[in-house]
Simulated scan of single mutants.
Amino acid sequence: MQNLSAPENSVPPNSITSPQLQSMSDDAIKQLISEGYKLLDQRKREREKKVKDQIKQLASEAGIKVSFREQRQETRGRKKEFPE
């Protein structure tokens, strides 16, 4: 199996370097992290939709009808917040 990940010491273009991150305020870092989590969630939903569509297509071609139940979100506890 081929390893497609970038070398450990490489920095992707347009990425934030450690010195840049260290110069940012706490609020700016929190905002960056929040935006990162939102982007990761969006990408996860897009991947899930794509895979479900592929499964439905394959099942349809085999004459099988499939449906998916959405997982229930855990609502216990508080939303995780960043420590001050």
Rank of each mutant, 00 (worst) to 15 (best):
L4R: 04
L4S: 09
S5I: 14
A6G: 05
P7I: 10
P7Q: 14
N9L: 03
S10R: 06
S10K: 07
V11P: 00
V11C: 02
P13W: 05
P13S: 13
S15N: 04
S15M: 04
I16Y: 15
I16D: 12
I16L: 15
T17G: 12
T17I: 03
T17P: 07
L21D: 10
L21P: 01
L21G: 07
L21A: 15
Q22E: 14
S23C: 07
M24E: 07
D26F: 12
D26C: 00
D27T: 14
K30Y: 13
Q31L: 12
L32F: 14
L32W: 10
I33F: 05
S34V: 13
G36A: 05
L39I: 01
D41L: 06
Q42I: 00
E46W: 02
E48P: 00
E48C: 03
K50T: 13
K50L: 12
V51P: 00
V51I: 13
V51Q: 10
D53T: 03
Q54M: 08
Q54F: 02
I55W: 04
K56F: 04
Q57R: 14
Q57W: 07
Q57H: 09
A59F: 06
S60Q: 13
G63P: 10
G63F: 04
I64G: 02
I64L: 11
K65V: 09
V66F: 06
S67H: 06
F68T: 08
R69C: 10
E70K: 14
Q71S: 08
R72C: 01
R72K: 11
Q73W: 06
R76D: 03
R76K: 11
R76H: 04
G77I: 05
K79L: 13
K79M: 12
K80C: 11
E81H: 07
E81L: 10
F82L: 08
P83L: 07
E84D: 13
E84C: 02
